[in-house]
């Protein structure tokens, strides 16, 4: 479903010169699976996901999503993806209903089907009580629900969640996590990036650990435990990062 090969992204930076944000990352993610991207802040997770969503272009490497190349067939790629990120805000002066409808129309969903899907999504996420409320008056949890509904309105085969639980209270965060799990059960390919270990441990089938643009480890939790001889994912993560920091200092 998603194939990433030797992905590199660099850009000029005033302080650091030519900065390599992503350095030779490769991974695969399959339908029905939740693929976790784990890494501290600044590891390059968001850059990888922005390339997947075609918002950024890779410096080198190849990425295909559902058979479409992110550089050559960017428009088709965007139709395959639903992207939820802390950076994908919602329009303050629109209501949740208007916003989801607008994006549904942009994705070319026929109007009857669109309204059916909207009703289903608004029911599922219990958004009917605030569907006409302007987004500027919503809580963070409500906004995140609108964002997820917006990302799912065209029923994409791939869903990308970048730090989707960031800033949410425990109830809202759990709700997002259970949604992600349900989506995988529906056969969607889900990419879930986070720096919170417990979330990744709970829901991810495969994961990649990133640090300073590089991929330090990649596999199922069991494979990683075997490879690094460490059952506890948090310890494994900490050990990998500490070893990396020592090696570079």
């Amino acid at each position: 479903m998603i194939h990433v090969r030797k992905l590199v992204k660099s850009y000029p930076d005033l302080q650091r010169g030519q900065f390599i944000a992503v350095d030779g990352v490769s991974f695969d993610a399959m339908p029905g699976q939740i693929f976790g991207l784990l890494g501290p802040n600044g590891a390059g997770k968001t850059t990888v996901l922005r390339i997947l969503s075609t918002v950024l272009k890779p410096t080198s490497g190849k990425v295909t999503i559902n058979g479409f190349d992110v550089v050559q067939q960017d428009e088709q790629v965007r139709r395959q993806i639903g992207f939820v990120s802390t950076n994908t805000g919602i329009y303050d002066r629109m209501s949740g209903w208007e916003l989801v409808e607008f994006f549904g129309q942009l994705y070319g969903v026929p109007i009857d089907l669109l309204h059916d899907r909207m009703e289903t999504l608004f029911d599922r996420f219990q958004m009917n009580s605030f569907r006409e409320v302007p987004c500027s008056h919503m809580s963070t949890g409500m906004k995140q629900k609108v964002s997820i509904a917006r990302a799912m309105i065209h029923d994409p085969p791939v869903l990308v969640f970048d730090e989707a639980t960031s800033g949410l209270d425990i109830m809202a965060a759990r709700e997002v996590l259970s949604t992600v799990e349900q989506l995988a059960q529906l056969g969607k390919c889900v990419i879930f990036s986070s720096h919170i270990m417990s979330e990744v441990k709970r829901i991810c089938d495969r994961l990649a650990i990133m640090h300073e643009g590089k991929m330090l480890a990649y596999g199922t939790p069991d494979e990683l435990a075997k490879e690094f001889n460490e059952e506890d994912l948090e310890e494994l993560f900490y050990g990998l990062l500490s070893a990396r920091v020592q090696a570079t200092s």
């Binding site: 969503s53 990120s85 919602i90 329009y91 942009l106």
Partner: peptide, 14 residues
Amino acid sequence: ERGTLETLLSSPAR
């Protein structure tokens, strides 16, 4: 500033 540009850029609109 409001973070909505990235939402729009990730839509199918060119």
